[in-house]
């Protein structure tokens, strides 16, 4: 289980991206999101892909980790490609497949959508891989500070996000534990019709959710037992500090954004 679920995990390596201020990484992600939205041609995809590979290379984390982060989305991506292939009628007629015809436009749209999704998820994974969850929440809280003026509590929101991230692997462990307990008392999927199998797997979700709630309550108790109070000011062991490299990192993200805008206008 541990090795299967990589998204949302921190991977400790030594790289300049690991050392960046989390605020810089999150802002960069916003810029990147804009660029992804504007990506609508093979050329733009090429730019985004090159840029992402460069960033991934800089993290010193093997590409296989990123591949595993994208893998759970394979189904959706495939669906999107097929959808475009089946329903887009632009461009030259390509190949005939029975009653369907595949058009160059459909192929282009499908491939570009797929690429956009893969690139975005990979770069989003980069943030979680290179930033400790604590720092991520700290950065998030700090970035949301201006919202305090409208009655929003950035600390609460940041804590919530932090705990949610922290709970992803825990919930998977919980599921594995219950699965083991059920197997040991005779749960057997082999030879059962698909429908019944799906029902049994779904029935796993109920105790997993109940377990997650139980753990959440325990966590709240143990935090309060150690002096946590909602809304009370807290200090941080590591304070965030914005360095020159953070500015450089942010500026780097202007490159793909600008290129994509230029390509899109032409």
């Amino acid at each position: 289980m541990r090795t299967r679920m990589v998204f949302g995990r921190y991977i400790d390596r030594d790289s300049w991206i690991h050392r960046l201020d989390p605020r810089s990484k999150m802002t960069a992600m916003l810029l990147f999101m804009c660029a992804i939205f504007l990506t609508d041609s093979y050329a733009a995809v090429l730019v985004m892909l090159t840029f992402s590979l460069f960033m991934i290379k800089s993290t010193n984390i093997p590409l296989s980790y990123f591949a595993r982060a994208v893998k759970p989305l394979l189904f959706i991506i495939l669906f999107i490609v097929i959808f475009h292939l089946a329903f887009e009628r632009g461009g030259a007629r390509f190949i005939d497949v029975g009653p369907f015809a595949i058009y160059a436009g459909g192929l282009e749209k499908g491939l570009i959508s797929a690429a956009r999704m893969v690139i975005f998820v990979a770069l989003a994974a980069m943030i979680s891989f290179t930033t400790e969850p604590d720092r991520l929440t700290q950065g998030l809280g700090s970035m949301m500070k201006p919202l305090r003026a409208v009655g929003f509590h950035p600390e609460k929101a940041a804590l919530m996000v932090g705990i949610a991230l922290r709970f992803i692997p825990t919930i998977f462990e919980e599921a594995e534990r219950i699965w083991k307990a059920q197997l040991s008392r005779g749960l057997d999927l082999t030879g059962k019709p698909l429908k019944q199998r799906a029902r049994l797997i779904l029935s796993l979700m109920v105790p997993v959710m109940a377990g997650a709630f139980r753990r959440a309550i325990e966590l709240a108790d143990s935090m309060e037992a150690r002096g946590y109070r909602l809304g009370a000011p807290r200090s941080a062991i590591h304070t965030l500090s914005w360095k020159a490299r953070d500015t450089v990192f942010l500026l780097l993200f202007l490159v793909p954004l600008a290129s994509v805008v230029v390509i899109s206008i032409n």
């Binding site: 534990r177 219950i178 307990a181 059920q182 197997l183 040991s184 008392r185 005779g186 057997d188 105790p207 377990g211």
Partner: peptide, 16 residues
């Protein structure tokens, strides 16, 4: 598994 019953070390890990 029908013929061998296992009681786990921690009961909270076994009940669901």
């Amino acid at each position: 598994r029908k013929r061998v019953g296992l009681v786990f070390q921690f009961p909270e890990q076994q009940l669901f």
